[in-house]
Design a protein around this nucleic acid. Structure first.
Length: 389
DNA sequence: TCTGGGGTCCTAGGACCC
DNA sequence: TCTGGGGTCCTAGGACCC
């Protein structure tokens, strides 16, 4: 009875559904959650989807497609608290819960069937609980593998359950377009279509060597597994000891494109402070500092530099990204977005700084810690580098 | 006024080492 | 003097996910 032990639970139009709890008067109208400027749609309710609105659509296009759409601003603190409650509901069923984002998770229910019934019964019970306690609906895919459960939950939307027993994996997957597979995006879909591989079944019946020749060893093998639903990986529970982040970063699109170096360097300082603050809160430091620049034509470049010692010091990271920016030698080039990312993160306790004789650097780490303390006491707005005033 | 922000993983070339 | 081969690290870009 546990040949389909994996559940993929996905909230339906999560941000929109949560936002509409406060505005029941709007449930029959097209509603999206998103910012107002140069942003994209974060979530669209099912009424809005009838107009072609969906997540990631630019807000400007959304308004053109549906001029009377109601736009609600995201309220992340509410989203996070609803998400935390939902995840707790999952953990009442099994400790093996891998959260993929605020609104979806994989559950391995092998250890719960004796107590709670079949995976399908567990799925229905979860859906009822979440509906009663949170006032939102969700959809569940039930299968033996992560990728099949994921595809199944998408097919179950909205407000449904799709179960795919092992014997039915091929008949379930093979008629679908290749783009439905978890991990096949726009580019890979177009590539496969160009090779005449339109359905998952087409991929499934293509020799492995052919797939690997056309798509590379790794992607070829991966696609074959996806097409037969034979991917096997254990979930890694999100709570408790788990893998630390590999990188942390922040980027932001300017309200208007700019070529003003002062504006850009100040923005890099804001972003750096945000990232290093999070790093210190997480107790990590990193060696590789990456600058991201997106130009007004949307082309995007990155430049990175790996240091000999890991750091979490705001001034050091900011100096590194400023160097990288200046090395680009831009002159009157309009910049749309800049970003800062620190990679190669390791626990701070494992970093042994070699203090160079006469180095005027210590003091900055102390200053950061003072800033962190003040931020905790008075809030982020209270403390910021002088150049940001 | 098209096109956010947070991540992960893979590829490919060059440097460098054995 | 004429061409190997493997492994690791670094850098840049790109695909994909939510």
């Amino acid at each position: 009875m546990t040949d389909t032990p994996l559940l993929h639970v996905d909230m339906d139009a999560f941000y929109a559904s949560v936002a509409l709890r406060e505005r029941p008067d709007l449930v029959d109208q097209p509603v999206v959650v998103g910012g107002n400027g140069r942003g994209v749609v974060l979530a669209a309710n099912y009424v809005a989807r009838r107009y072609g609105l969906r997540s990631a659509l630019p807000m400007t296009r959304a308004r053109r497609l549906c001029p009377h759409v109601v736009v609600l601003a995201p309220d992340y603190s509410t989203f996070m608290s609803v998400s935390a409650s939902v995840m707790e509901t999952f953990r009442d069923v099994t400790p093996v819960v891998e959260a993929m984002s605020l609104d979806e998770a994989f559950l391995d229910v092998r250890g719960a069937t004796r107590r709670l019934g079949t995976p399908t019964e567990i799925a229905e019970r979860l859906r009822a609980t979440i509906h009663d306690e949170q006032g939102i609906t969700c959809s569940v895919g039930v299968a033996a593998s992560v990728s099949v459960a994921k595809v199944a939950s998408r097919r179950a939307k909205p407000d449904g359950v799709v179960v795919v027993p092992p014997a039915e994996v091929a008949s379930f997957l093979h008629p679908l377009d290749v783009g439905e597979l978890y991990g096949v995006g726009e580019k890979t879909q177009a590539l496969l279509h160009r090779f005449g591989l339109l359905t998952v079944g087409d991929v499934a019946h293509t020799p492995l060597q052919t797939l690997q020749r056309d798509l590379g060893d790794h992607l070829g093998r991966h696609l074959r597994h996806l097409a037969w639903g034979t991917d096997r990986r254990d979930l890694s529970p999100t709570v408790g000891p788990h893998e630390p982040e590999r990188s942390m970063g922040a980027d932001e699109t300017f309200a208007r494109d700019t070529d003003d170096r002062d504006v850009i360097v100040r923005e890099l300082l804001r972003l750096t402070a945000r990232v290093t603050g999070r790093m210190r809160a997480a107790g990590v430091a990193g060696r590789t500092v990456t600058l991201k620049v997106r130009f007004s034509d949307f082309t995007t470049i990155t430049r990175s530099r790996t240091r000999s010692e890991a750091t979490d010091v705001t001034v050091e990271v900011h100096r590194a990204v400023t160097h990288l920016y200046d090395a680009l030698g831009l002159r009157r080039v309009r910049v749309r977005l800049v970003g800062v990312r620190v990679e190669g993160l390791v626990p701070r306790a494992t970093v042994h700084r070699q203090l160079v004789l006469g180095e005027p650097e210590h003091g900055w780490a102390e200053a950061d810690r003072a800033v962190d303390r003040a931020t905790r006491r008075f809030g982020a707005a209270a403390v910021r580098p002088a150049s940001l005033w």
